Amino acid sequence: MNMLKLSVLSISLATVTSGAAVSPALGLIAKYFSNEAEIMIKLIITIPSIMIIFTSFIFAKLSKIINAKYIAMIGFCLFLVGGVFPYFLNNIYLILISRAILGIGAGFLTPLSVSLIGILFEKHEQVKLMSLSGMCNQLGAVITVSISGFLASLSWQFSFLIYFFVIFIFLLNIIYLPKVMLSNTHKELDKRNLKIIYPFYISLFLTQVLFFNFTNNFSIIYEKEKLINPSFIGILMGSSGICGAFVSFKFSKLFSIVKEKIRYIGALGFLIAFLLFSIRFSENYYVFNLNLMLIIGIIACFFNGSAVGILMPFAFSQISIKSKKSALSTNMAIASACVFSGQFCSPFIDEIFMHLFNLHHPRDAFLIAALIALCLFIYNFRVKIKLNSK
């Protein structure tokens, strides 16, 4: 792989970690800020998402006047400052402000990585590169979540130091990223093209609602149930990322084998995962139940990671293939907005359903996700896909 492809794909390592990297510390953070509402703790993970949504639309305008390299530099600087600064803080509101700055940085980087794939490489390379981008996303999650879990076992504040890793990606892109313009300054939003690809926006939104149901709830639930220590929570969550990385790496081959069936295989993986996560046991025979719950949790993590590893590169590759080149940066900005609006909405959807159906058990959040996964499974039957001849 040449250094240009490596630098473009490395941006994906940063974008996925904007919210999820410190998720293993969420249970400890909730304990430290025990006087705060649980939704405030979950906002630590999801508030970058709402900032990414706004910044993604700024990106679409900015890409018309500033080249890709300068956009990347702005994004990396904001990402690093907003990511690391909570290490020095012990006020929940200042932490949330820092997370918002992180989100602004990620808002420049997220559509950039997928837009560069569409601009710099031919159509027949894009499915493979999108799958590699998905693999980089998952690998980023595996590495950062696992290390963050270890750091959280020392102190919840240490977990924010994980964002120093972005310095290496920053340097790589300073050297190898070209000063290419991403957008035609005279091209307006192509509504006809948008009508073709909007089903994949919905799929991306629901995929992220489900992924962040896992990210937001797993650490808090397992910390409350005292099943495992925080460092192992990071490893277990990282195992989900390993499965996702492997499936993303093999996505183009899997796509060529199963073809149209790919559209609902991922949703089925989510459905199985969250049905397993939602299983609860009585407190009798606790040791037996503990071992069984851990085994079920590991299996569910496998299905959860595999689902993300299929659905994300699937949706992004279809958007890339079906987009006109002149509209690609705008279309990808909208896709990013869908991704991160799903992340932001995820805890609020949990809260709404919990109150609506008067649910009280912590694992009921996973039951809600199973229902959403079923809706995604049914919806994806109507999604029309394009098979690349190469």
Rank of each mutant, 00 (worst) to 15 (best):
S18P: 01
A21S: 13
V22L: 09
A37E: 12
M40A: 08
S49V: 02
I52C: 04
S63R: 10
I74Y: 14
G83I: 00
L89W: 03
N91V: 05
I92V: 11
Y93M: 09
R99G: 09
R99L: 10
I101K: 13
L112I: 10
L112V: 11
V114Q: 03
L120A: 09
K123Q: 12
K123C: 02
S131H: 01
V142H: 00
V145A: 03
I147P: 00
S148I: 02
G149F: 06
S155N: 15
S155Y: 14
Q157N: 15
S159Q: 10
V166A: 14
I174D: 06
H186P: 01
P199L: 02
P199W: 00
S203I: 06
T207A: 09
L210T: 01
N213A: 09
T215V: 13
E225V: 10
I228D: 04
G234E: 09
M237T: 05
C243F: 14
A245E: 05
F246P: 00
K250T: 09
K250I: 12
K253M: 09
S256F: 13
I257N: 13
G269W: 02
L275H: 00
L275I: 10
L292M: 14
A300R: 01
A307W: 05
V308T: 06
N331M: 14
M332A: 03
S346E: 07
F348Q: 13
D350W: 02
E351I: 14
F353T: 11
H355M: 09
R363A: 15
A370N: 04
A370S: 15
I372T: 06
L374S: 10
N380L: 06
K384M: 12
